[in-house]
Amino acid sequence: MNEKTKSFLFKGWILLSTLIVLAIVFYIFGYILSNGIESINMEFLLDGPSGIPVGSQGGIFPAIVGSLLLMLISCVFASILAISTSIYLVFYCESERIKGLIHLITQCMSGVPSIILGLFGYTFLVLYLNLGRSVLAGGLTLGFMIYPFIQVRVEKTLLEVDKSIINSSYALGISRTYTLFKLILPICKSDIVSAITLAGGFAMGAASPIILTAAVTFAPIPSSLSSPVMALPFHLYILTGEGISLEKAYGTALVLILLLLIINIISTIINITRKEHK
């Protein structure tokens, strides 16, 4: 094969690949949007599911609220743990060996599939600790899942703060804690918030950790942390898996994707305003 043919084939290959990827992106959105848009109306968004079997009529309001609740709980839980661990690793831990060990454990954890976490959540939280299928058990399980995601990003952000800026605070005789709260965290705030929102979106879309720990086919808006909930990804799974209503499934998928898109946009806006700030 001469150089010209080779170059031609090569270019054909990479061009085709890119077109395929772009086509997939557009196809998925087009597909969900065009099929789902008709199902969406005020009734669908604000009513509970009804009909026989449940879900074939009515709306998905409890699932929207449930998903947001699960996201909130998982974010709060995981952020507290992840931010503390990151602060410890960056500012207090002096032993390289402990740092390495914690990094290793976190990295292994990020490779554990979400269903294994679901399995743990189901057996330990739901059965042993007797939390039952509940918002709390599901939120915590999702929290385990997003913990490594937040931890890695927050630690990176903290490490990126200019060392000489931190030193000039210490040089003023100012303590670590004050420096952390009044200087470092304000500088990192938007990066941290954006990491948490991204993780929240990730948690909201996940079905496998909550199938066993929180989600049910039908429930009203939870009245307490120990109530079971409906959730968008699980609802979508049930609607399709049991063949209840294709039309409602399209609508649910669209709402889920739109919610995630909104979360993504919020996170991007937070990042952009920060860049302008600098």
Binding site: I32, G205, I257
Partner: peptide
């Protein structure tokens, strides 16, 4: 676009 692809929940992929 690729980031968005990465953000689509797996249940939606299963559905499609």
């Amino acid at each position: 676009g690729i980031d968005v692809l990465a953000g689509i929940p797996s249940v939606v992929y299963g559905f499609i």
